[in-house]
Design a protein around this nucleic acid. Structure first.
Length: 203
DNA sequence: CCTACGATCTGCT
DNA sequence: GCAGATCGTAGGG
């Protein structure tokens, strides 16, 4: 409940450059408080999705539906959707209202609530498989589609700066995963992850 | 209404 | 390495 760092302010999310926000989220700490129990992980892998001219984005070229509505809201909210009928994927909405940009969080390294995360993942050892994938980390942190639209400056899900500095040289860029349907846009190097960490999704 | 498929993960071979 | 899980969403008739 009590944050151990500085909660990221609204301005962090309002930036008109989703790729920059995607990079800056590395090293920040994603926290949840579900039914009074806190768990958290350092963000180690992200992907940027832009609402304009990005065929990999759900809201590409202004596609506005019930599902994508959250992405059109102001930055600083959660966009959570169901993938393959099973996995709940968590995104951070960025930019101002009307511009549907978002950052998919793909991996975290657990730093708080270890036993709770292990229990949610039905594991007994704290290894990367606990949270090195977009569907795995939401399960570990207790995030579901019921959290779609939640304000990240609230008390259920938030992101903190706990002073983990990340140098540009420690960030690796690569094409995004699982978006082959996006054609030429799938080649854009909009996936970012921390160098030398095992807490990164497998390809 | 109907159909195809997905920003994935797991277990089995 | 590969198939199955599992259901909401988007698009077409």
């Amino acid at each position: 409940m009590h944050s151990q760092g500085k909660i990221l302010p609204q301005q962090f999310y309002e930036l008109d450059d989703v790729v920059a926000v995607s990079r800056r989220l590395l090293g920040k700490v994603l926290c949840t408080n579900i039914r009074g129990q806190t768990s958290a992980g350092v963000i180690t892998e992200t992907e940027a999705y832009c609402g304009r001219n990005d065929k990999a984005c759900h809201a590409n070229d202004g596609l506005r539906t019930a599902r994508t509505e959250t992405m059109y809201g102001p930055g600083g909210r959660a966009y959570v959707y169901l993938c393959y009928g099973i996995h709940h994927l968590f995104n951070v909405v960025t930019n101002r209202e009307g511009l549907a940009d978002a950052v998919l969080i793909r991996s975290v390294r657990p730093v708080e609530g270890h036993s709770l995360m292990l229990e949610r993942r039905s594991r007994d050892a704290l290894t990367p498989v606990v949270s090195n994938g977009p569907g795995k980390l939401t399960q570990a942190l207790g995030i579901t589609t019921g959290d779609d639209g939640v304000n990240l400056l609230g008390e259920r899900i938030w992101i903190e700066d706990r002073g983990h500095s990340v140098a540009a040289a420690d960030i690796i860029a690569s094409p995004r995963i699982g978006v082959d349907y996006a054609g030429n846009h799938a080649l854009r190097p909009w996936r970012f992850y921390l160098k030398d960490t095992p807490w990164v999704s497998q390809q």
